[in-house]
Design a protein around this nucleic acid. Structure first.
Lengths: 340, 340
DNA sequence: CTGAAAGCGCTAACAG
DNA sequence: CTGTTAGCGCTTTCAG
């Protein structure tokens, strides 16, 4: 089924078929009608590959989820943010006439050739000075990121939220629930989420004359990392903080378990907020108040923004995503009349 | 960066470059060496599109997850089986030098052209007489399914497990835990999972002289569907069965809630087993014993099998996946000495 | 309004 | 051993 078959059957040249079907040149209405009918009858549709060869537009978007390259696992426990993201991105891409291809770190050897033939990339949570971005730039492939590359201040094509706002919202919530001494636990990946949250927290602490309590815990350690942190948080005289903002959901769940194991109560002695909602935060006892990272909304925005860039719309501003706090039992302390 | 640039720079013809780089024709060793060096130096790699135009091999696998087309949502709640499946399939495909493209029902209008240009498809859980299979056959695109199309007995290229084995294992487990009257609740999608499980159950009931207790509940109803079933299960004189095998995890969770709401105990009065492990079954109180559908193993097997078909290996037998029971609180009744 | 022809980058007969 | 050449299926000037 090629354009030739249609042309022959319709008694015209392939040019006319092409024009008629793509609404390009100037074709007499009756001829176009006729060609369209024949094409439908023959079930013809232009070969995507041949078309791309001319137009260098494949109709496929690539998606690289960097944290999964780091974790080296697509296991769902605690990473459901990313799978929701990928699913939503696929649907949105499809709706816009693109396919969505999942790609693992394309800087490694043995990447499929098509990886460098897609029309554009979404890089979710790039690391600092991400080599994937360099690779794509070298190949002149358009890209947008979700969350900025913290070492590339001049790169502005990223969607997401400044984690600053999230951090301040979390702190405000904790204060309103009576927290006096708030600690922060971030992951160790060099991404904007970890970095910006810490910055916002430190600024807040500084402005409010509170000594900052910041700790770090490797993302790959999972719940066990959170339990380990619980042991350092709680000493003989009790917890050194009465609230913890814990970016990673898995850490938060481990922390909750650890605190309770040490004989203290969540939320009475220690309140916990997770920076990302996940199965663990929902499942924990008590369930953990979390920031809803809104993966579906973010994914749709990222696809939309990337496509606008592909269309040559370079003026458009990258979207900022609104996020909400899912309030649960881990911060269910009755609000205190704010004393200071 | 085209093959011409390399040819010019190396002082040979494009044919020689092509041969040298693809190890095809006969090229003097020194020339090949030279060409390879030049290519590396120039950072050349053959354009995937142009190459596919000739070879009609794009290097991309398509994945269609049918239940998600039905649910019309990639929301994560209770569908984590599929996202785990997709992630694992992507990784395996990548490792084999293929990309993996997510595609929604390609029989609908507005599908991206590339959808019909991929090398092969994995169709997860096809419906009866699935139109997607017809479409792909019409386009002569190779495909394997996960779970068979129940109305296509002659189509044998499917991976999975006969749900018969799972069903019998579940029944055996329940009997061992003292169940006397086991009911079955399936979904309504016309797929092999629902159909074969019911068949196996009925056969078992028949052979053991038990009156079959089979109900159906729409997959899209979620936990609420399970609660509704609980109301029909429990009447004035108590539950009409002391154990339920509930294929869908969301239904199982709703059922557990409903039974307990009606004042009965899980597992004492009613034991529950889910046919697919999911967030809801893990999270439920008590946690629900479930069949581990092993999405990662299944996905890898499907990709592997599809690629062997693409390589023209038509003799290879489709793989059967081993599944295990994740035993949890919902069947934690002390085993009874089997009286019959 | 329609058609001939060039060429996208690559591979593979077929000559030399 | 190496190069010329004919396409893969399509879009797009440019002439009729």
């Amino acid at each position: 089924m090629t354009i030739h078959d249609v042309a022959r059957r319709a008694g015209v040249s392939i040019t006319t078929v092409s024009h008629a079907l793509n609404g390009k040149g100037v074709v007499k209405d009756s001829t176009r009608q006729h060609i369209v009918e024949i094409a439908a009858e023959l079930g013809y549709s232009a070969d995507a590959i041949a078309r791309s060869l001319r137009s260098s537009r494949l109709g496929v978007l690539g998606l690289v989820i960097r944290p999964l390259d780091t974790l080296d696992s697509y296991s769902p426990v605690g990473v459901d943010y990313f799978v929701r993201f990928a699913g939503a991105a696929a649907v949105e891409a499809l709706d816009r006439g693109f396919g969505l291809m999942l790609v693992r770190d394309p800087t490694t050897p043995n990447v499929p050739g098509v990886a460098m033939a897609v029309d554009g990339y979404i890089i979710a949570d790039p690391v600092a000075l991400d080599p994937v971005i360099d690779l794509l730039n070298r190949h002149a492939i358009p890209l947008v990121t979700v969350g900025r590359d913290i070492e590339r201040p001049s790169f502005t094509d990223w969607v997401g939220s400044t984690s600053t706002a999230d951090t301040l919202a979390v702190i405000a919530h904790l204060r309103e629930r009576g927290a006096r001494r708030i600690a922060l636990l971030t992951g160790t990946d060099a991404n904007a989420w970890n970095r910006d949250s810490e910055l916002a927290y430190r600024n807040w602490a500084c402005e409010h004359g509170q000594e900052p309590l910041v700790s770090h815990c490797d993302e790959t350690l999972g719940e066990e990392g959170g339990r380990a942190f619980a042991r350092t948080l709680v000493d003989a005289s009790g917890p050194r903080a009465d609230a913890v903002y814990c970016l990673t959901g898995r850490h938060a769940a481990g922390l909750a378990a650890g605190v309770q194991h040490a004989g203290f109560s969540v939320p009475r002695d220690v309140m916990i907020v997770a920076g990302s909602d996940s199965e663990q935060t929902r499942r924990s006892t008590p369930p953990i108040t979390s920031v809803d990272l809104a993966p579906e909304v973010t994914a749709r925005a990222a696809v939309d923004f990337l496509i606008s860039r592909l269309d040559g719309n370079s003026s458009r501003q990258p979207p900022l995503i609104e996020r909400a706090l899912l309030v649960r039992g881990s911060t269910a302390r009755s609000p205190k009349p704010s004393a200071n």
